[in-house]
Simulated assay, not measured.
Amino acid sequence: MTTLIDYDKLNSANPQEKYGCAKVLIRIAQENPLLLYPDFPLWSEMLEHANNILKWTAIDLIGYLSAIDTENKINDLFPVLRTLLHGGQLITCNHAIFTFGLIGKNKPEYTRQVIDELLAIQNDTFDTDECKAIATGKVLDVFKSYGPNLRDTPEVLAFVREATSSRRDSTKKKAESLLKKIVNNDPTSR
C-alpha cells in the first residue's frame, strides 16, 4: 500500500467504515493525489463497481489523479468514463461531468475532446427533463471554470444559449451568467 489507508475497508460490511474510507480517499486525492496514483489500477476497477458510492468515489478519484497523470493512464479509461457520462443515470453522470471537467483542465491536450463529450449531454436520455436540466447545469459549471476562452467555440455558445431557456431556474441562471461572462468577457459574472 502507498498510503496509511486500509483499502480493505472499502469492502467492509460496515457502511460507516466503507464510506468513511471513501471520504478519506477523496480528501487525499484533492490534497496529495501522488499518494493514490500508484494504485491507479484499483481505481480503474472501481469505476465498474456494483456499489454506486464506490463507483462515484472512483470517478472522482480519476478526475483528481488527472492532475498528476504523467503516464497517461487516463487514456485507457475514456471509453468507460464516456459510458458513465452518457448512461442516463443522473448522479453517475454528474460525477463523470466533474471528472471530465478536471481532465480537460489538467490535461489541455484533451480539452477539445472533453468539451465535445460534455456537449453531447444534450443528446442523452434521462429519466426526466429535470434530470437532464440538472446535468446541463453541471456542464455549465465546468464550462464556467474554463473561462472566457470558450468564446471561440460556437458549439459551446449554442449550448449555453439553449440552456438560458431551461425550465430549471438554477440552470437558466447559470447559463445567463456564463453567457454574459463569455460574450462580454465579464469576470464578475457568477
Results as ranks from 00 to 15, higher is better:
Gly88Tyr: 03
Phe40Gly: 06
Leu178Glu: 02
Ile103Gly: 08
Asn32Lys: 15
Pro154Glu: 11
Asp124Ser: 14
Leu102Tyr: 06
Val139Ile: 06
Phe159Cys: 04
Leu179Gln: 11
Glu109Thr: 09
Leu90Asp: 02
Leu85His: 10
Ala135Ser: 14
Asp69Leu: 06
Thr92Lys: 07
Lys174His: 10
Asn11Cys: 08
Lys9Phe: 13
Leu35His: 06
Ser44Glu: 11
Ile26Val: 14
Cys93Ser: 15
Leu25Trp: 04
Ile59Met: 08
Lys138Pro: 01
Lys107Phe: 00
Ile59Pro: 07
Lys181Val: 04
Lys55Trp: 00
Ile26Phe: 08
Glu162Asn: 13
Arg151Cys: 04
Arg151Phe: 14
Arg161Lys: 14
Asp69Ala: 09
Gly87Phe: 03
Val160Tyr: 01
Lys73Pro: 01
Leu77Ser: 07
Leu61Glu: 12
Asp8Ile: 05
Phe40Pro: 04
Tyr64Leu: 05
Phe98Tyr: 13
Thr171Pro: 02
Lys9Glu: 11
Thr171His: 01
Glu162Gly: 09
Phe78Thr: 03
Gly137Gln: 04
Arg112Glu: 15
Glu176Asn: 09
Pro79Arg: 10
Thr153Ser: 04
Gly88Ala: 13
Pro15Asp: 12
Lys138Cys: 11
Ala67Asp: 11
Lys180Gly: 13
Leu81Tyr: 09
Gln113Cys: 00
Ile91Gly: 02
Leu150Asn: 02
Tyr37Arg: 09
Asn32Arg: 12
Leu35Arg: 11
Gln16Gly: 10
Lys18Gly: 00
Gly147Lys: 07
Trp56Glu: 15
Pro15Leu: 14
Gln16Asp: 15
Asn11Asp: 15
Asp186Gly: 10
Ala96Glu: 06
Glu45Gln: 15
Pro148Leu: 04
Thr128His: 11
Thr57Ile: 03
Arg112Met: 11
Phe159Val: 05
Leu118Ile: 03
Gly20Met: 06
Leu34Gly: 13
Leu102Trp: 04
Leu157Asn: 01
Gly20Pro: 05
Asn185Val: 02
Phe40Ala: 07
Leu179Gly: 01
Leu90Arg: 12
Gly101Arg: 08
Phe100Tyr: 15
Ala67Asn: 10
Asp116Phe: 07
Gly104Arg: 03
Leu25Ser: 05
Leu35Pro: 00
Thr188His: 10
Ala163Lys: 03
Ser166Cys: 07
Asn51Tyr: 07
Gln30Pro: 00
Lys138Ser: 15
Asp141Trp: 00
Arg190Phe: 10
Phe100Asp: 03
Ser145Ala: 15
Asp6Gly: 02
Ala58Cys: 10
Leu118Tyr: 02
Gln16Arg: 13
Phe143Lys: 05
